[in-house]
Simulated scan of single mutants.
Amino acid sequence: MASSAQLPLAMAGEDEVVRVARVRGDADLRQHLANLGFVEGAEVKVVSRAAGDVIVTVKGARLALNRAMASHVSVTL
């Protein structure tokens, strides 16, 4: 699989399916996001977005992330 450019989850478009490439932040934040399903290689679908806040589905769960949280998750298209 070819490597594609990474972008923050906050910038992914509505209805796009992306893969988690990397989660940044302190250990507590990375662990919290991992517990929610944001682990490397996980498939994430952007359900809707507004001003950087996103609603996504990951591992069968629908979650809302604010812009700050979504900016810590790098994804590839």
Rank of each mutant, 00 (worst) to 15 (best):
G60A: 03
R24G: 09
A64H: 05
L77W: 00
G41Q: 05
E40F: 04
L7Q: 11
V75M: 01
E14G: 01
A68R: 08
V23N: 11
A21F: 09
V58N: 03
V73M: 09
A64K: 09
G60Y: 06
A2D: 10
H32C: 10
L33K: 12
A10S: 13
K45V: 07
V20F: 02
A5T: 13
A51Y: 11
S3C: 04
L65S: 03
L63V: 12
Q31N: 09
G60L: 03
V17T: 11
E40A: 02
R30E: 11
S71N: 13
E40V: 09
R19C: 01
A27Y: 03
D26H: 05
M11P: 01
S3Y: 02
G52N: 12
A61W: 06
R19G: 00
R30A: 14
T57F: 02
A21G: 07
T76C: 07
V75D: 01
Q31D: 14
A2Q: 10
V73S: 08
D15L: 03
A42R: 05
G37E: 06
D28T: 13
I55R: 13
G52R: 06
V17W: 00
L63N: 09
T57N: 04
V47T: 08
E43L: 08
A61R: 14
L29I: 02
E14Q: 14
D26S: 01
V58T: 05
V73Y: 10
E43W: 00
S4M: 14
G25D: 00
V58M: 06
L65Y: 14
R24N: 13
V23Q: 11
L7T: 04
V75I: 11
A68N: 08
E16L: 00
K59Q: 15
L36T: 04
L33P: 15
V56K: 10
H72G: 01
V47N: 10
K59S: 14
A50Y: 12
